[in-house]
Design a protein around this nucleic acid. Sequence first.
RNA 1: GGGUCGAUGCCCGAGUGGUUAAUGGGGGCGGACUGUAAAUCCGCUGGCUACGCCUACGCUAGUUCGAAUCUAGCUCGGCCCA
Length: 400
Amino acid sequence: MTFSFGWLYRGTHEIFPSGDGKNANENLEQRILQSDRPLRIKMGIDPTGSDIHLGHSIPVRKMRSFQDAGHTAVLIIGDFTARIGDPTGKSEVRKQLTEEQVKLNAQTYLEQVRPILDFDTPGRLEIRYNSEWLAGMDLTKILELLGTMTVGQMIAKEGFNDRYDKGNPIFLHEFLYPLMQGYDSVAIESDVELGGTDQKFNIAVGRDLQRHFGMRPQFGLLMPILIGTDGSQKMSKSLDNYVGLNEDALTMYSKLEKTPDALLENYITLLTQLDYTQLSDNPREQQKILALDVVSQYHGMAAAHQAQADAANLISGSTEADSVPEFSVSTIEFPAKIFFVTSASGLCKTSSDARRQIQGGGVKLNGEKVADPNFLFEKSSDLIGQVLQFGKNKFVRFVP
RNA sequence: GGGUCGAUGCCCGAGUGGUUAAUGGGGGCGGACUGUAAAUCCGCUGGCUACGCCUACGCUAGUUCGAAUCUAGCUCGGCCCA
């Protein structure tokens, strides 16, 4: 029986309730087999930023597996909750976002998960905004929600606990977050909620609320939190150890190709459908296979192969690489010194940094180290066609 | 509401009137090496089309030739009491 549920368990960290011991009557496999309708698989994303990365893709990929097994993915855009911010894992209060920002973010999020989910098969995907049921909630209802939990239960939650111990502030509205997320489960009548392991508390609150409102409680399916490309901390934009879903193929490939050895099995299991045991045990090969597979998921096989070839060329000093991002010189005023060009082209954030990196030997023009930060380009034609490299994997080709 | 302590660069944390972008650590970035990994060693780690100029030690005024360091008010936070 378990065999046919391979898709359910691949990479999965935990399913609760587990269906053994005293929960014997609550077993997800049973529920799937016995249901006479597709299950409703919930996952929430809070549009708090503009980019999502491979870490976010983990539960989304699981959601796709459910879709392929015939179930309905209910993607909840947390347009309302985003304005409070999930306190999970946060050491500080989230800043609140405006309505416009949230709307915009929601759009770009949907674009980014499009390659992962089945958007086309009828009945397989529902997209809901939680402002639909949260925005108009009146105080009576809110009191009912608040009345289902105690301060002790809230304080026991990991993030709150730490912050309380450290003497950091916790605001009351943050207590509402788990309740709102939980109420989403009630509103959409979910059967299973997907999330990272850090979502256990919030998902469990969803179960409690569903029970409170006389519904059959959902299952929680927790996926591991993806470690970032630095190999130690969880993938996140603010730590800059992420691979963004909307990054170009070459950048994506270059980042994944340097995945730390210790992370390879983890990445391959979570980010691809490949069978790790069938792969070469040479880590260098595994890096390439991983990078190729993931890039092809988001950019197509052809672009992935192109990126692979280009990455190989660039590292050997050749500039024959079609997928190098292009940058128009039209925004640069000539004559221009190379340190200015380096920052103006977006390879680094500040011109001061560009200057330093040049002095440290980290900037190359057509594969040659740049020695003088004040090297001058008299006119735009001096620059067009050249490939500028910053560090190990940031490249730009200048075009008119 | 009362009392008390605190606020320094990405983070932690020195510095308590004086040449200085401000000790140290972490993290990060870059270089060498390598497998575009790890480990190790070295350099960098406010901004600016830049051998000079500008902005910085919670905010705003003030004292002073001169303040991150002194004074006042304000803002935010911790703890104790209510």
